[in-house]
C-alpha cells in the first residue's frame, strides 16, 4: 500500500500494489493515478541507449534530399533548424533544434545516466533524482513525433514537384521516434521513481 494523492484533484488514496497492466484511477475524477507497469530495467535502458545513438547519428547524415531539372539539394536536421537563422526568426533556430533533437536526446541521456549505474551494480548518481525530475518537466517540449508528422506533410507537398530521396538520418530519426513512442507507452514514471527511491 502506498499513500498517493491524485495529480488532478489532490484526493488522497491508499493504493495497493497493482498487478501488471492494471491501473488505479481516482475515485472522484477518474484520472489515472498509477499504472501497474513493472519497469524492466534492461528494456528501458536499451531503448534509452538506442535513442541517444540514433539521434546522434541522425545529426550528421542527410535527412531528405530533392532533385529536379538537374538541380539537387539535401538537408540535415541541423540545416533544417538553421533555415530560420536570417532575420528575426533567428530564435526559432534554437527552439526547433531543441524540440526536435536536443530535448529528446537529453531525456534519453538522463535515463542512461540515472538507470545505467543501477543496472550494472554501481551506486546511483547523486543527481539521478534531480536529473529525472528535469526529464519529466521537459516531457511536453520533446517534439520528435510532431516533427515526424511535419515531415510527412512536407513530403506530400513536394513529392509532386520534385524527386525526393530519403537520407540515412531520416531512417535513424524514424526509428528513434518509434522507440520514444513505445517507451512513453510502456514506462511508468512512478515505477522509475520507486526504483530511484529504493537505491538511495
Amino acid at each position: 500500500m502506498t499513500l498517493l494523492a491524485c495529480p488532478a484533484c489532490d484526493l488522497l488514496h491508499e493504493v495497493p500494489d497493482l498487478a501488471p497492466g492494471r491501473r488505479a484511477r481516482c475515485r472522484r475524477c477518474d484520472t489515472v493515478i498509477v499504472s501497474g507497469q513493472r519497469v524492466s530495467l534492461d528494456r528501458t535502458l536499451a531503448m534509452a541507449v538506442a535513442v541517444t545513438v540514433l539521434i546522434f547519428f541522425a545529426l550528421f547524415f542527410p535527412f531528405l534530399s530533392i532533385s529536379e531539372l538537374g538541380l539537387s539539394n539535401s538537408a540535415t536536421l541541423i540545416e533544417i533548424a538553421l533555415v530560420f537563422m536570417s532575420g528575426w526568426t533567428a530564435p526559432l533556430t534554437i527552439a526547433v533544434a531543441l524540440t526536435i533533437v536536443g530535448i529528446p536526446f537529453l531525456r534519453a541521456a538522463i535515463l542512461v545516466y540515472a538507470l545505467g549505474p543501477i543496472r550494472f551494480g554501481y551506486p546511483i548518481p547523486d543527481k539521478a533524482a534531480q536529473a529525472f525530475r528535469l526529464s519529466q518537466a521537459l516531457r511536453p517540449w520533446a517534439m520528435a513525433e510532431i516533427f515526424f508528422l511535419g515531415s510527412a506533410v512536407a513530403l506530400v507537398k513536394i513529392i509532386d514537384l520534385a524527386h525526393v530521396g530519403f537520407g540515412a538520418a531520416f531512417w535513424a530519426f524514424c526509428a528513434a521516434t518509434l522507440i520514444i513512442a513505445f517507451e512513453r507507452n510502456t514506462t511508468d514514471s512512478a515505477a522509475i521513481w520507486s526504483l530511484i527511491d529504493d537505491m538511495e
Binding site: M143, I146, L149, I158
Partner: peptide, 20 residues
C-alpha cells in the same frame, strides 16, 4: 503541442527547396 507541426513543415520545406 501538436500545433507546432506547421512550423516544422515550414522548416523542412525551406531547408529542402533551395534550387536557385
Amino acid at each position: 503541442r501538436w500545433s507546432m507541426v506547421d512550423v516544422f513543415v515550414v522548416a523542412l520545406l525551406a531547408a529542402l527547396v533551395q534550387l536557385g
